[in-house]
């Protein structure tokens, strides 16, 4: 996947032109995970929507698998800070929703009903929610709901997984568990991951490349490859190399914030 000189502008209700993104050019090799970090308003989430085709670039182009993205991609997994489960469906039926849509749309990649169900149950087992398939979302804790949301993003085995602050609403310990879980899910699946986050540790733990973004206009200011081998451990993350990388990125983000404040 590659982004070439991508820009996105929009006009606010009081007719100001906002340059949300400008001159973003990056390549994301298949099967790797990249993270975008930066202050609020740097266009991280916009970038994610441009990649998914939910928004259309006003400049430049997004190319996925050799084809320019012009409308919503049809086989992407997404998860957000808000798990947005359907409260009238059980956990299992929430997970099966993507497969239902694929089946209705005649997607040849759709597994049959039994295989789909097995896949859902296997995913729930991986995230430690075995036995929860018939529960209602409202009976689950925030961390459990987020795990279900992550499973829903993976059930159709997407080649591209887009995560927008997926763990931001969780407490610190649950969040670390989710990082390890996410890493485990990534090890036996070959998706390309794009993670948008405020949490620098999260980016270091999960991404192979981190893009530090700056605001006004939203753009990429720094690039950091993360060289720890995968699978990573929390010990490495909080070790000297991890801490040093986090400190460096914080310094890159901080002065800009103070200057603009």
């Amino acid at each position: 996947m590659s982004l070439r000189d991508v820009g996105f502008e929009y006009v606010t209700s009081d007719r100001r032109v906002i340059r949300a993104l400008e001159g973003v050019s990056i390549d994301i090799p298949r099967g790797t995970t990249v993270a975008f970090v930066g202050p609020s308003g740097c266009g991280k989430s916009t970038l994610l929507k441009l990649i998914a085709g939910l928004l259309t670039t006003t400049r430049g182009s997004v190319v996925v698998d050799g084809r320019a993205v012009v409308g919503p991609l049809k086989h992407v997994g997404m998860a957000f800070q808000n798990p947005v489960l359907l409260p009238w469906r059980t956990v299992l039926d929430n997970l099966l929703l993507p497969l239902e849509i694929m089946r209705e749309n005649g997607d040849p990649r759709t597994p049959n009903r039994v295989a789909g169900r097995d896949r859902a149950l296997a995913l729930l087992r991986t995230v430690g929610l075995d036995g929860a398939e018939h529960r209602q979302p409202r009976e689950l804790s925030g961390g459990m709901r987020q795990r279900v949301s992550l499973c829903r993003a993976l059930i159709h085995e997407p080649a591209l997984l887009l995560l927008d602050e997926p763990f931001a609403a969780l407490d610190a310990f649950t969040r670390e568990e989710m990082w390890e879980l996410h890493q485990a899910l990534g090890l036996d699946r070959a998706f390309t991951g794009v993670l948008v986050t405020h949490d620098l540790r999260e980016a270091v733990f999960l991404a192979e490349t981190i893009y530090v973004m700056a605001t006004d206009p939203g753009r990429i200011a720094h690039v950091h490859p993360v060289t720890f081998p995968v699978p990573r451990t929390l010990g490495e993350l909080y070790g000297p190399a991890g801490t040093e990388l986090i400190r460096q990125m914080r310094d890159e983000i901080r002065p800009r914030r103070e200057a603009s404040a």
């Binding site: 929507k49 998914a52 085709g53 939910l54 919503p72 991609l73 049809k74 086989h75 992407v76 997994g77 997404m78 998860a79 957000f80 808000n82 947005v84 359907l86 409260p87 009238w88 929703l97 993507p98 239902e100 849509i101 694929m102 209705e104 749309n105 997607d107 829903r152 993003a153 159709h156 887009l162």
Partner: peptide
């Protein structure tokens, strides 16, 4: 309807009609 939910479904190739039927009507 939550915009995130709409995004999750659109990224699966769901049409407006599908989003209306699967999510809009029940909620």
């Amino acid at each position: 309807l939550e915009s995130e939910l709409r995004d999750v479904l659109r990224a699966l190739g769901a049409s407006r009609w599908q989003i209306f039927r699967k999510v809009g009507v029940p909620r």
